[in-house]
Design a protein around this nucleic acid. Structure first.
Lengths: 198, 198, 198, 198
DNA sequence: GATGAATGAGTGTTCATTCAT
DNA sequence: GATGAATGAACACTCATTCAT
């Protein structure tokens, strides 16, 4: 526990724990003390690494953003059939796995924080940009076959992201499992329609 | 300052101020003391009215819910033509006015709180229920003409609410005004498609 | 509940509830608010009757003292045999019933309070005086037969009271029931010896 | 004021001050803030050392217990004559010095607290246990000579402690000095009788 | 690198009390 | 007689942070 470590190892470790505390207690509910207690280290040590809490929060968004991006590229779509690619994409975006692993914006309290902290906002915006670009790329691959027509891939991608964030938000309120699954199916249809009409 | 008031007048006044503090500082960042200072009253007076902070938060959600409903009923749709009614409905939901006045869920930190506070969750869920019902009623009026067909109005309404929350969420990241307007237009098309396909 | 009452009825009612709260929460832990809540009346009403908390506490000691005295006179010793009278007296003082009903000083927090509040002290002192007098009377009755010799009944009575308060104090720490009973038996022997040697 | 200290020095210092505040204001009347003010330190420093008030109270009982024990071992009984040892023991227990230095249980408000706080109760119980053991040891030394017979040293010790606590309790009500001294003398006789009859 | 001492501001909440109704 | 509005002080405790070691 009290092993001497250096910044390179310790910092991501602290950030990971900080994030877990945020998920549990919200951004404003999370504190250096709680993170320190969880890690069984001294609160001063966290200050030692990040100078202050604000800094640590910005570094957290940075860190999460990098993880987010890696996740995108790992989600490979094997098929080459354009329609099937689209279907697979939609499926991924509505899968439980996706939401379990992309919870930064899902923890809406970080979003709220971003409205008050310009640095955090910028990094979050950048994260969405990257996400839109990824979808654009997919849409263009699908469109290149000629079978599917997408006039403005960027706009379509933005609509998809937007709709997905609505889904992420609203699905919490479906507790009945079958209703939840119905909602998920409807969501997938909606996304496909957005692409078809794009 | 020391004006005598009663619960009927004071409570909504406190809630209004509480909400403003939340928007500024986030749910966990908002404190009874800050609300009191803003109102130039004593913090214990707030406790006098709401017993504790949790209670106050729950009452806030309810209060906002009532405002939500009133706002909706005030936005009268004059026309009787079914298609025009739908168009008007979509227009309302994508108007700036709407988002300026229905920002409870828009302040995502309340959402976060709801994941940790069952009472808040229940009341928020109830608020969405009411909203879905309002839309269902509109859809049924439109459908009753026979010109428009909606198989499952509740599902359609849920998709609308979900998509709107995504819009509310995501539109913050459009800073360029023309891009923002384009996004709004796309959003309206998407909503109309959802209804058409419902 | 909200029946209109007058001071004569209401005051003892409040004092009774105040005392119960003290037993539960200690003198300093007891508050007007808690008493009011228990009685489902408004805290201001208590102030209305007693002007302030200090006053109420003094009136409580008064009230309890009266009850104490009444209890003394109710404990009749039927026998006339001097030794049996003494035995019966000792038995009474070591009975559970006695401690259940004379808990004013038993609630040691009132005692503590008395060290800081002269009024309370005086009334408590008076209560002990009355108690000593009662025992003196009993000792004199027993001694008048000639069979038992008590040189200084007042001193003996004081020793008895003192020893009894030690018993009241210490018996709480005997949890094992048989140990507790043994301790009680020893106590009774000790008291009898005090009288014999008096 | 801002002298740097460590736990070893600071904790007993805080406990000493806490105890003095308790004597002045009662257990429930004593507050962290009052202790801090008395010591001219910041209230949160007290929390830093004891985590919370409950803990501090428990540690106080332990601390007083240690002082109790030390006090007893410091009061050396020089003689080896068994009867004189007993006399000296009784003298110590009825000395002013003893009560000035062992006032934990004498502050009856801690006792009251112990009825509501199981931890405090346990630690107080433990303190009495230790005290009883110390007396038992003395009684056994005295008995080993053969001149004095004590059947059940533990029971006798318990009776002594109990009687002493009654003395501690009741002597407050003797204001007249000569009456007080007479009472003390009677008390000593009583204790000796208890031992003789043990 | 890591700990612990120390501060001062802030949190939600309780309390006794005053006053108007 | 009884309620509710309002205050201001106090409470235990948390927090971010600084500094010495």
């Amino acid at each position: 526990m009290k092993k001497r470590q250096n910044a390179e190892l310790r910092k991501p470790d602290i950030l990971k724990n900080y994030y877990q505390v945020i998920l549990k207690e919200g951004v404003e509910g999370a504190s250096i003390a709680k993170v320190a207690k969880k890690m069984k280290i001294n609160p001063s040590l966290i200050i030692h690494y990040f100078a202050n809490k604000d800094n640590m929060t910005v570094e957290l968004v940075d860190y999460m953003s990098r993880i987010y991006n890696r996740l995108f590229s790992d989600m490979i779509i094997e098929t080459t059939d354009p329609q099937k690619r689209i279907d697979r994409l939609v499926e991924i975006f509505c899968s439980d796995e996706w939401y379990l692993n992309t919870d930064i914006s899902g923890d809406f309290s970080i979003l709220t924080l971003s409205f008050r902290n310009k640095k955090v906002f910028k990094h979050l915006q950048n994260m969405y940009d990257e996400f839109v670009k990824l979808i654009v790329r997919e849409l263009e691959i699908a469109a290149s076959s000629g079978k599917i027509k997408i006039d403005n891939p960027k706009r379509t991608a933005e609509l998809i992201v937007s709709t997905l964030e609505g889904y992420r938000h609203f699905k919490h309120f479906f507790i009945d499992e079958s209703a939840s699954e119905n909602y998920r199916q409807d969501m997938m249809k909606t996304l496909k329609n957005i692409i078809k009409n794009g």
